[in-house]
């Protein structure tokens, strides 16, 4: 036997055989769902809705959490700003994926409280260093006012994620697919009391500044409602196979 076939045989002997599949990358895209919502008598139009998306982890467990998903099945270990007023898919980068089924997700909105962070902090890529930045117009009959809101949503515990236990799919992740994320920013404002905000005056209202000045103000309540909704109405995920 010549050297070359012998080498080939040796290499085959070393590598032939079933193994677990190695990781691959898949496109990650995000888009907004709606930019207008009706809240009571108010029609609210978001003119700006930028949110930091990530880090994002997909897990095989039924309820992803920092403790139950120490090893993820797919991840986007970065933060990207998503324009939620744009219904078209926006490419965010590559998702690192291990082949297999995922059933849950956990994520942050650009602001993390890692195990190694003494306090929560915004990651590079978060819009303006915040979790989300909004600007909109609320109209009810002949009344209207403009508002802006830069806010943070942070994990409640050090080492945890802002959104945990999010059920998705299940999806079978395989090479050739892509992950689409849809975020309904308008729905986040559905719980805001715009009548109370209207009582603040004609505007424009910087809700974050108002809340900072008076934690009991309607602005603070509005921000709390949005923060709550960002967790209660999380992003939706869809895996598109054989792209």
């Amino acid at each position: 036997m010549s050297f070359r076939p012998a080498t080939a045989l040796l290499l085959c002997a070393a590598a032939c055989g079933a193994t677990g599949e190695p990781a691959f990358q898949a496109p990650l895209r995000a888009r907004g769902a709606a930019s207008e919502v009706t809240v009571g008598a108010w029609t609210v139009t978001l003119e700006r809705a930028d949110v930091g998306l990530g880090p994002l982890y997909l897990c095989a467990t039924a309820a992803a959490s920092s403790e139950l998903c120490a090893t993820a099945a797919a991840e986007y270990a970065a933060v990207a700003a998503v324009d939620l007023t744009d219904p078209e898919p926006q490419p965010l980068g590559e998702l690192d994926v291990l082949p297999g089924q995922v059933r849950s997700a956990m994520l942050d909105y650009g602001v993390t409280w890692l195990k190694t962070q003494a306090k929560p902090g915004a990651q590079d890529g978060a819009p303006g260093g915040r979790a989300a930045r909004f600007a909109g117009l609320a109209v009810s009959g002949d009344m209207s006012f403009e508002f802006t809101a830069d806010l943070d949503v942070v994990p409640v515990l050090r080492g945890s994620r802002t959104v945990e236990g999010l059920r998705i799919g299940p999806f079978d992740l395989a090479p050739g697919g892509a992950l689409d994320v849809t975020i309904d920013a308008a729905a986040w404002w559905a719980g805001v009391d715009f009548d109370a905000l209207a009582a603040l005056g004609p505007g424009p209202h910087d809700l974050a500044a108002l809340a900072a000045d008076d934690p009991a103000s309607p602005a603070a309540d509005a921000l709390a409602a949005v923060r709550f909704a960002m967790i209660a109405v999380p992003p939706r995920f869809a895996w598109t196979a054989e792209e």
Partner: peptide, 23 residues
């Protein structure tokens, strides 16, 4: 198999045994 404690097990049936050099 995958469990709540270990949802992403590192091994699948039929996989080559880790850390063992075939040759």
């Amino acid at each position: 198999p995958a469990t709540a404690e270990n949802p992403s097990p590192p091994y699948v049936p039929g996989q080559l045994l880790p850390y063992v050099p075939p040759v």
